[in-house]
Simulated assay, not measured.
Amino acid sequence: MSLKFLMPLALAAAAITAAPAQAQEAAAPGPTDFDFNRDTVTVGAGGVYLSDYEGSNDYRFTAAPGAVGSIKGYGFIIAGNRFSVDLIRDKPGPVWDVQAGPIGVVNFNRSSLKSIDDPRVRALGKVDTAIELGGYVGIGKTGVITSDYDQLAATVSYRHDVAGAHDSGIWQPSVSYLTPLSTKMAVALFASAEHAGRGYATTYFSVSPTQTLASGLPTYNARSGWKNYSLGGLYTYALTGDLLHGFKIVAGGTYVRMLNGFADSPLVSVAGSRNQWLGAVGLAYTF
C-alpha cells in the first residue's frame, strides 16, 4: 500500500491548523482573540504503520513528513507522497468555502521488493513508480453543528498517471468533518472511496500466466471499478500554545475495505486481506 492513504489524515490536519477553536473550557478566548487572517504553516513528521502493498496482510513501520498551511487565504498540503493546493481564496468566519486546485501523488505501490514480505508477491516483480497528476473540486461549510468553527467538507478529485506505470485514472470522492473541542484540542472524521481505471487494475491486481509460474498465485484478469472505501479519524492536541501556534501531537487511523474485483485478486484474496489498516502518530509545529 502506498502512502497515499495519509491524505485523509493530512486533510483533517489542514483543517485543524486553519480553523480557530471555539473553546468549551472556562475563561476561553472569544473570536476577537484570534487573527483570522493570519498566515499559518505547520510542518511535522511522524511514524506510520501500514501494509506492505495495497491489499497486503503484512505490515511495516515507516516515517513520513508533512506540511500544511494557509498563506494569504490559499491553502496547501504536503503529506508524504501527496500534495495539493487550493487556488480559491478562503474567507474568514462561518461561511461557505468553494475549493479547487491541482493534486499530485507519487505512487510507490510495489515499486520496491525489499518492502514486501510475501515471497509470492515479490515473485510478481516490481512495478514502476507512478506519477499521478490531476485536480479536485469541493465545497465546505464552517459553523455547522457544534460551534461557529466546526467544518464539513465534500470533495471529488481525479488524477491520471503521467509516467506510464499504470497509465490510467483514479476518481476519489471524500467527505470530512472537524470539530474543535477546546483551544488546544480537536478531532476529525473522514470517509472516501476510490474508482480505478483498467490500467491501474491490470498493473497492481492482475496476475499473468507467466507470473503464475513464478509465484504460484492463480492467473487473474482485474478490471476497472470501485476499488475501496475508507473510514478514519484524527486527534490533535497542542503541547504548547494553541491549535494556531506551537507544538502539537497528531494521531490518527484509517480503515480501508477492498472492493469488487480488486478484493477478488489473488494479491488480496490469497496473499493479502480485504481489510487494510493504517495508523500514524507524529509531532508538528505551527508557525
Rank of each mutant, 00 (worst) to 15 (best):
V156D: 08
I145C: 03
E132N: 00
G93C: 04
R120S: 15
D128H: 03
D161F: 01
I145F: 14
V156Q: 08
D161E: 00
K114D: 15
I116S: 10
D117V: 02
A130G: 12
F108A: 09
A153M: 13
R159I: 12
A100L: 09
K126P: 08
I139R: 06
G134D: 02
V162Q: 13
N109A: 01
V121H: 00
V137K: 11
G125F: 07
T142K: 14
P102L: 04
S111W: 05
K126W: 09
R122Y: 04
A100N: 09
D117M: 06
R122L: 10
L152I: 09
D150F: 10
R122C: 04
S147P: 02
D161W: 00
T142S: 09
V156A: 13
T142P: 01
D97K: 15
D148P: 13
A154V: 13
I145T: 12
E132Y: 00
V156W: 10
S157A: 12
V127N: 04
T142V: 11
S157H: 03
L124K: 02
D118P: 06
P102C: 07
T155D: 11
I116E: 10
D150C: 10
A123L: 07
V162G: 11
Q99A: 15
A153N: 13
A163W: 00
I116D: 13
K114P: 00
H160D: 10
L113V: 08
N109V: 03
A163I: 01
V137I: 15
A123N: 02
R110G: 09
L113D: 13
I116R: 10
G134S: 06
P102K: 05
D117H: 08
W96F: 13
A153W: 10
R122S: 05
D161K: 03
R159P: 00
I145K: 03
T129V: 14
V121T: 00
D117N: 10
P119D: 11
L152Y: 09
V106M: 13
G138S: 07
I131R: 05
I145D: 02
P94K: 00
H160K: 14
I139Y: 09
P119C: 02
K114L: 09
L133M: 02
K141M: 06
V156S: 13
D148E: 13
V156K: 12
F108D: 13
I116N: 12
Q99H: 15
T155K: 15
I131H: 08
I131M: 11
L113A: 15
R122Q: 15
V105Y: 09
V105R: 07
D117T: 05
N107F: 09
A154H: 00
I139T: 11
H160F: 11
A100Y: 05
Y149M: 12
Q151Y: 14
R159N: 02
T129M: 09
G140R: 10
G143Q: 01
D161G: 01
V95L: 08
V127P: 03
W96M: 14
R110I: 05
Y149E: 10
V162A: 14
V156H: 07
S157W: 09
A130W: 03
S112H: 07
T155S: 12
G140N: 03
K141A: 04
T155L: 01
S115V: 06
K141E: 06
S147K: 00
G125I: 13
Q151N: 11
W96K: 07
Q99S: 15
A163K: 00
T146I: 12
S115P: 00
D128K: 10
V144P: 08
D161V: 01
A154Q: 07
A130V: 04
R159H: 07
D161M: 01
G138W: 07
K126S: 15
D148Q: 14
